[in-house]
Write a protein that binds this DNA or RNA. Structure first.
Lengths: 349, 349
DNA sequence: CCATCTGAGGAAACCGGTTGACTGAAACTT
DNA sequence: AAGTTTCAGTCAACCGGTTTCCTCAGATGG
């Protein structure tokens, strides 16, 4: 039976290794302000190993050191985008000796619940915040409190703590694809106003649409949900007065959920995908391949966003903040069945 | 400025209220082994309030008391089923003065990572385990360790710690619906073998199929994923040698993801939903309404499962375990467009 | 009138780590 | 040979709570 029924404590390890608590603590934490013989060091590690020693996080935190825990605050658990981010964060945190916890920071919540529960009660050393939005009470709290934190995905201008992806590039990638297929009128279903990636994606879309010389590039802003996507799709596809056909031949959405909602709406309108309307979604998640038709998406480096955010946060915790970071991996187009050449006046191929 | 930049500690509250640390601790924890004047009690609460006092969880844990935190272990973050469960758990935990953390307990992980990180390091008082499966290393660890825990959704026979839903009833509900529409050959896409709700659902399906006198009730077991559902659907719909049409007119799936995969497969086979094949899924989540066609589901009381599990765990932590629990709320049929009368030899309506 | 009881609250040990100051021995200086 | 460094590690205070005895004043009892 290799494991003890009771937790091994620091003094147990010290006793087993024949040294003092202080020595064990310093050795295990790899402090260099102490000189130990290699042989002693080895004995300590060995004793810790065989006893299955794990430091009590509370005791550590109390003693002024770190809890070695971080928390990732996400706006909606149900949004699969964050699953990938969370996995990246968890994995990287583990590699750095931290534990990454997950908390939903939803709107209905009391102002600072998560902050109080996690930070005020001393459970974590820092926050990865993916739920920032203008006016979020948390932002105010943070400005008055010295807790290390970074913003990921949704950034806060001027904070110098933003970890983001090249969202503008994703609009360019999507538009290039549609343009290459022959589309000359493309609608964009954007996310809510005020949320950074929404804004950036939208502006990049408009800019690149102009650069490509598109005939039309209307935008509708809605929630990141299925309903939002459906609603926006109906708006963008409504024929102009006097016309019989929709003003655009393709839609590019801000989220995968919006794409799902948009596809349902398109069909409700009696239109076919991709024959009448092509659809490109953002974020490549497993479900995209199982839609009908399978959805062409722009795959964002979500996993890397998680790892990069942890790197930035840990650096901040350790006193060497790194400033704003943009994940270097470029968005990548994943081609599936929801996009095709438009059936223009020129005739179907 | 109502909030201090630095955390208020117990002694600060004590000082502000003009009493000792001991008194504050006892008053705030509502211990009755101490008699205090109502007026003193009021002063203490008031001081704690104005100082925004929050006890340091680590200090608490160290002093032998509880951390007031629980962890919910789920097998897959991406599975939206658990989102609803997690919300129920979080909310109920909060009402009981606990914090519910979320951890993914995935297969690729080192044997007992979550256990070590959360329990061994003293971060939580108990575990809500939704990721049990036969042979899971965690089960072994738990049997050697006295950590309070309950199993939810997936149960462990004989543990006396299972919190489940009336899964058998969901099969009955689904079958009754299909039978009522006139279906006489229904296939069931079950979950993996060995996982309790899968087994129970499958057996209830077979039993009730026999009770209804169905002509055929084949079952295919696959993963809870889209791919699993697609694979199983192809198998169940394969015409018998010498026949041209599928052997069943309806499919009942174990998970929502399976239903999505099955729908894609059905269409790939050139069949229509619901004209050729009706589909009923388990678990009613937002996306079900946005599929094409919208999916008829059996809504399980997931939120209640989360709250009930927390109730059971907290009871266990406080020394009064409650034994196995079945959530009383009954599964409910949510009628949408994926089910219809079968187009039998008797002709389409 | 002194002993006892009860109500209201306090003193201090303790939980398991971390950390800066300190010590004893050996090695090196001069 | 005495003083100074360096090495290798130890001591003990401290973090912020909880909990187990205590104490002390006033009320009660005989």
């Amino acid at each position: 039976m290799p494991e003890q029924p009771v937790r091994a404590r620091l003094v147990d390890v010290a006793h087993a290794a024949g040294v003092s608590k202080a020595t064990v603590s310093k050795v295990l934490n790899g402090r260099q302000d102490l000189s130990v013989r290699p042989e002693t060091r080895r004995r300590v590690h060995e004793a810790a190993e065989t006893l299955g020693y794990r430091p009590h996080s509370g005791a550590r935190a109390l003693a002024g050191a770190s809890t070695h825990a971080l928390a990732l605050l996400i706006p909606a658990l149900g949004n699969p985008t964050y699953v990938t981010i969370a996995r990246g964060a968890y994995q990287r945190a583990r590699e750095l000796g931290y534990l990454s916890l997950l908390a939903e920071d939803f709107d209905g919540q009391e102002a600072d619940d998560s902050f109080n529960d996690l930070v005020q009660e001393g459970r974590v050393d820092g926050l990865l915040i993916a739920s920032a939005r203008p006016g979020h009470p948390l932002l105010d709290t943070l400005s008055r409190s010295p807790v290390p934190h970074v913003f990921l995905n949704r950034s806060v201008e001027g904070s110098g703590r933003n970890v983001t992806m090249d969202v503008a590039r994703s609009s360019v990638t999507a538009l290039d694809h549609l343009h290459g297929l022959g589309h000359r009128a493309v609608g964009h279903i954007a996310g809510p106003a005020g949320i950074t990636p929404s804004e950036v994606r939208k502006e990049a879309f408009l800019r690149h649409a102009e650069a490509l010389g598109l005939d039309a590039a209307p935008v509708a802003s809605e929630d990141f949900t299925e309903d939002g996507g459906g609603f926006a799709a109906r708006e963008l596809l409504r024929p102009a007065p006097g016309s019989a056909r929709p003003p655009v031949t393709a839609l590019y959405t801000s989220s995968l959920a919006q794409a799902i909602g948009a596809m349902a709406a398109i069909r409700d309108l009696g239109l076919r995908i991709p024959e009448d309307v092509s659809v490109v979604g953002n974020d490549d998640l497993p479900v995209a391949a199982h839609l009908h038709p399978p959805l062409t998406t722009v795959a964002m480096p979500l996993y890397e966003l998680g790892t990069a955010a942890v790197d930035a946060l840990v650096a901040t915790i350790e006193g060497t903040p790194v400033g704003d970071v943009v994940v270097p991996t470029e968005p990548r187009l994943v081609l599936r069945g929801s996009t095709a050449r438009p059936a223009g006046p020129g005739g179907t191929p």
